[in-house]
């Protein structure tokens, strides 16, 4: 059994989200191959945890994906692949998977499953993930506090083209608020990233 937390998004209470986190994952290649074979048992969004900065950074594409699914406007084939697609600032699905999805070398993994049907419950997801993922299950916390724990600020900054941060905000130089370090840096980046994800492709 893996530790799975259930999140309920405001405005969509009827579709809970099951989220699990694993570290020291050793069979990422196997999990990825199952995704490539479109094995229907592996209908998850497997996300490389190094690309997730904060809990909201993950919940935002989940919300968008669920919303687009329910209003039948998905750009990808499943709501789970849409989550990974929505994370990326560009409109390239393959690129999104390479950047945010599981790769053969992934060691820290976030698995997201939308409970779109009643048979997908916290227990069923916990059991299945516990069986197939070879790694250490980590409780993500009540508000998903642990989701950003493995986030790599530098990598995320690069993908969203947020400049090099710190005092030297690229060509902008002295003007503009330089995004400082620590928690505030992540929050400030998160605000920009949510905006980038929201307006992409429109």
């Amino acid at each position: 059994m893996a530790a799975v937390r259930t999140f309920v998004l405001p405005h969509y209470p009827e579709y809970p989200i099951q989220i699990a986190l694993f570290k020291d994952v050793t069979n990422a290649a196997f999990l990825r191959s199952q995704l490539l074979e479109a094995n229907s048992d592996f209908d998850y969004a497997f996300i490389d945890a190094s690309m997730i900065l904060t809990p909201t950074h993950l919940l935002s594409p989940v919300f968008l994906s669920l919303h687009l699914h329910l209003t039948t406007r998905l750009k990808t084939r499943t709501p789970h692949s849409e989550i990974i697609f929505r994370l990326h600032p560009n409109n390239n699905i393959g690129e999104s998977y390479r950047k945010f999805g599981i790769s053969d070398t992934t060691t820290t993994l976030i698995a997201v499953r939308l409970s779109l049907t009643p048979d997908v419950t916290r227990e069923s997801v916990a059991k299945h993930l516990g069986d197939v993922v070879e790694g250490t299950s980590v409780d993500v916390g009540e508000r998903g506090e642990m989701l950003g724990e493995w986030g790599d600020v530098g990598l995320v900054r690069k993908v969203y083209k947020l400049g090099d941060g710190g005092g030297a905000k690229g060509k902008k130089g002295a003007k503009g608020v330089a995004i400082g370090g620590g928690v505030d840096e992540r929050r400030e980046m998160e605000s920009v990233i949510l905006g980038i994800m929201a307006i992409k492709g429109l």
């Binding site: 947020l162 902008k172 503009g176 608020v177 330089a178 605000s191 920009v192 949510l194 905006g195």
Partner: peptide
């Protein structure tokens, strides 16, 4: 927001 002006962030659209 990107350029550091204090405006409300866009959370969803």
């Amino acid at each position: 927001r990107k350029d550091g002006v204090t405006v409300p962030a866009v959370l969803g659209l």
